[in-house]
Amino acid sequence: MRSSASKLSLCLLMTPFVLWIVLLVLLPHLQMLRVSFHVRESWDTVTLGLEQYQNFFSESYYWRTFVRTGVMSLFTTFLTLVIAFPIAWYIARLARGRAKGFLFLACLIPFWASELVRTYGWMILLRESGLFSTWLQALGLADGPVEMLYNDAAVIIGLVYNGLLFMVVPLVTTLDGMDKNLVEAGYDLGGNHWTVLREIIVPWAMPGVVSGCIVVFMLTLGSYLTPILMGGKDSAWFTEQIFTQFITRFNWEQGAALGVLLLVLSSVIVWLGLRVTGQNLRKVMG
């Protein structure tokens, strides 16, 4: 009796989640997968085929953008990690009481504004007539206006900024749980700053590092506004390609194929990342 009642309540609890997964995640993706194999013969006839995927490999612009997006996302993720680690270390290990909460809040505050607003903020700072350019001129470091926007570096700055919180949080969580004696033992047994970091702190923080990297990588790979607005005339981003196919070219079939490829790329890279670092998904997300 009791077990059937608990089974029922479990089912009821699971229902919204299952519905969400099936209706909003699984079905749209299956539909997209199906559309990606469509080939439009004329206005109203469609056959199945691999033409959309062939287009991807034969049109160098697609796969070049694809590779570029992947490489830049990896680099952004790495840079975010390098910047977030000291911040997380400070919050988790050095800050106390109110300062700790305040610092955490400071990381969170930018996320009260939307990605668009954050991106515009950076554009105001970086543009030729912007704040940084004005300061550089005022300090005599530049003779004329300096354009810092519309290039890949600007895109990476924007993406790192967007990803920072998602790296800091898991790092703080793992570093918080670390016995401070481990670090002291590391020094006590003859280690210097570098060896203690490499041999003790980083291995300990690895689950946080990997989960942060996965989240930031996914966010970066899938971001749209920041690369579009801050990127230069050569800074193509793969999501832009997908958007263009769906919205401006009305080519849903091609867009779907590109979407599927992006999904495959992100899955493969995450899988590789887990393999290389010897972590598994359960440990990292748990």
Partner: peptide, 12 residues
């Protein structure tokens, strides 16, 4: 060298 109260063996 020091033996810590909770030993501080490196878990990794």
């Amino acid at each position: 060298n020091m033996v810590f109260q909770h030993l501080a063996l490196f878990p990794t």
